[in-house]
């Protein structure tokens, strides 16, 4: 199938991209990696009048250090995120979750920022972003602002980005020395997550001193499993303690019933997978 007609611009700077977005108005769409958008256009589920391709905005690509944080450019591909040494060292959870996204070809094109801005509740990167308390840096005609991850995801495919705003960078606090695991549950390799659990922990001796847990596809937005985190901190990293803490995983979730799972099963999975994710993270 062939997309409906649209205009296309490929700015080379963030400023130009913001201006292009302002000029184009409501019916424009940002083209990041295009791995969700282009199929949607092909099936004519969307018909924007203009695409603003960020592919040539080189300043949005790559990962750098900025003091106590990593800055991931919104147009950094999944492929580059997975291979990035800074991410491996300071934000392992993001690398692990990214390696489960779709398939190798899609990871070559798909981008970190594009995935977050798309805000698919089954997408694998929002839960780690939420768990790690990242900040979204956005640019618009009014300048730059930051949105904490906890306020960024608003609803299905809906973020706190205002019209005319562009996600440009994601600032990730460093989690150096943390252990992490992303537990993805799906029916076939390429499928989206039925439920996913992102877990990062600090372990001293055998005791869990800090814990970050985020859930994928347990609501219309990613869910921070704060109850699990509280229950884990101070516990010995034993299977029993972790399993007990994981029982809190359903708090604050509103799972849907879709073709793969009903709500009760999702709730059950959230507990089991949280337990597994934390156990795997603790090693």
């Amino acid at each position: 199938m062939i997309p409906a007609e649209f205009d296309y611009v490929a700015p080379t700077t963030v400023d130009d991209a913001v201006r292009a977005l302002a000029d184009a108005g409501d019916e424009a769409k940002i083209l990041a990696g295009g791995q969700s958008l282009i199929p949607v256009l092909r099936m004519r589920l969307a018909a924007p009048t203009k695409l603003i391709d960020l592919g040539k905005v080189t300043e949005l690509q790559g990962v750098r250090e900025d003091g106590g944080a990593l800055v991931i450019g919104a147009m950094t591909t999944h492929y580059d995120v997975v291979r990035d040494p800074l991410i491996a060292e300071h934000a392992k959870l993001i690398g692990m979750a990214t390696s489960t996204v779709a398939d190798p070809q899609v990871r070559h094109r798909g981008t970190f920022g594009g995935s977050l801005a798309h805000a698919d509740p089954a997408g694998d990167l929002a839960a780690p972003a939420l768990a790690l308390d990242v900040e979204m840096v956005v640019h618009g005609m009014d300048g730059r602002r930051t949105i904490p991850a906890s306020e960024f995801f608003v609803d299905y495919f809906t973020t706190a980005l205002r019209p005319g705003e562009l996600l440009t960078e994601v600032r990730v606090p460093k989690y150096t020395g943390w252990h992490a695991h992303y537990e993805k549950f799906n029916r076939v390799a390429q499928a989206w997550s039925i439920v996913g659990v992102a877990a990062a922990v600090q372990v001293e001796g055998h005791t869990i001193t800090q814990a970050r847990v985020g859930l994928t596809n347990m609501s219309s937005v990613p869910v921070r499993a704060s109850g699990v985190e509280r229950a884990l901190v101070g516990q010995e990293a034993t299977p029993e303690a972790i399993k007990a803490a994981a029982q809190h995983a359903v708090e604050g979730t509103m799972p849907v019933a879709d073709g793969n799972a009903d709500a009760a099963y999702r709730e059950h999975l959230a507990k089991v997978l949280t337990s597994r994710a934390v156990t795997a993270a603790c090693g």
């Binding site: 969700s36 199929p39 589920l45 969307a46 981008t111 594009g114 798309h118 698919d120």
Partner: peptide
Amino acid sequence: LDAEGGAR
């Protein structure tokens, strides 16, 4: 995915 679909 619907008309709200953006980039993954």
